[in-house]
Write a protein that binds this DNA or RNA. Structure first.
Lengths: 247, 247
DNA sequence: ACAAAAGTGTTTTTTATACACCCATGC
DNA sequence: GCATGGGTGTATAAAAAACACTTTTGT
């Protein structure tokens, strides 16, 4: 069967192929567990179009650079952080989303591959030069953004909540050793206070058996010192692809 | 605050931007509920590279055409179908995934936006001209495919199973009126016999209240005639974004 | 000693699971 | 009248949800 040719190329000449530049836009969430806030990193646009308007940090993909490389590059240009989670979100590519493309002039098209990242606020240090035109915005206060970035942000937020429910992304963001309250606070800041009470959350997770108690105690001011736990990726393996592990 | 300019464009000249052609590759699943099989549509490649090898049906995006338009175009070129579900999967874009790109020659890059579609086998009519070099493959028998298409297929299959668990995509594929066994069979074909027994599946779904009994009976050979149900999208609204609705 | 944070246990309610069984039709 | 698929009910096990209570620290 292989090696045969069938006549199936279109009879009529098809319209020419589109030429693309590919952009990467990052939805970078930061978790401020102290103040129970979920923040997103916005930058002020320095160029047309949408000059002077807030937008998601992005860049255009360069020669020899993978999409993910580009996503990490944007991130590294804005913040310095040790632990982070990053994954691809969605690709927006309608021919009319960028005003640089005139609708009938068939010039270069712009396509945006969006990524979402999660970091903790306490360890995310802004490195942008001026520190003007870059800011963490509480999710509720996000203004009207450039391009279709509000839509991308909305999509990223939904993905974040879903991921948290079945996937161990929290442990990529937390330090190696963490307390169960650290974990619980992380969950409440994203999902809201009412997703579960602390005691039930705790019991459920411990029963699953992929959190190992190191025995080390951590004293943080007043109150009883908490045990430090470690995430055991091997013990988690059976729960991969299982829904609702964490809820 | 808007309208200000900061000096932040890189001091060193960055490497030039990459130029892309954008391809769309479709993972088209078809549900053969009669024989409890899940099939995927493969086409034999007619051009280099990978000439004569099986691959997912795909195309390059044309001028003025959106990504989704391109996905529908590929689909329409291969099959004719009334009810279908289609959504974007993932974008693969490393600089080395397509042998047409030489690794050091910084020419045009090829990026693939994958879509997955779901149709029912009984109503999906193949329209490809020769009918050679195009075939429905049972998921288990899929051979080594061109490019990274095995990986894309694997990814699509995972997405299909997950979507089925919380999202009402089944009703986009089923006809307007359907029996509960139609629905149950659809689920077992994708998720396997052991995901739930019929009586429990039935009770759970009916309790949720978004399936309305039309009262109309459908006789299909022997056995008691089944009630025809209709999916009530409005009544489903509260379950949007809720996980595990269907399991 | 008492507030604050960590950790344990118990009770109630809801859901999942596994069946057994009745109903309506074609042949 | 019996095989075939459709549809209902029930008993048990498991899990989710609510909340009361104990433990260990800092001040």
């Amino acid at each position: 069967m292989p090696g045969r040719n069938a006549k199936n190329t279109d009879a009529v000449a098809p319209r020419a192929l589109a030429d693309f530049k590919v952009g990467v836009d990052n939805v970078i969430f930061s978790l401020d567990t102290d103040q129970n806030r979920l923040l997103v990193l916005l930058v002020m646009r320095q160029d047309e179009p949408y000059l002077g308007q807030w937008s998601l940090p992005g860049t255009l993909v360069r020669q020899g650079e993978s999409l993910e490389d580009a996503a990490y590059r944007v991130l590294a240009e804005k913040i310095r952080v040790k632990n982070l989670y990053l994954e691809q979100l969605y690709t927006f590519g309608g021919p009319e989303r960028d005003p640089r493309e005139s609708p009938d002039r068939f010039g270069v098209r712009y396509l945006s591959v969006s990524y979402f990242a999660l970091v903790r606020f306490v360890e995310a240090e802004l490195v942008a030069v001026g520190l003007t035109g870059i800011a963490w915005y509480p999710l509720k206060d996000v203004p009207k953004l450039a391009f279709d970035h509000n839509q991308i942000l909305e999509y990223g937020y939904r993905r974040l909540r879903n991921k948290l429910e079945y996937s161990p992304i929290a442990f990529e963001v937390l330090p190696e050793l963490f307390t169960l309250s650290d974990l619980y606070q992380l969950y409440t800041t994203v999902l809201g206070e009412n997703f579960s009470d602390y005691s039930n959350f705790r019991a459920r997770l411990l029963k699953l058996g992929f959190l190992s108690d190191t025995g080390i105690k951590a004293s943080r001011g007043a109150g009883r010192p908490a045990s430090l736990y470690r995430f055991d990726a091997e013990a988690f393996a059976p729960f991969k692809d299982k829904p609702l592990v964490f809820i």
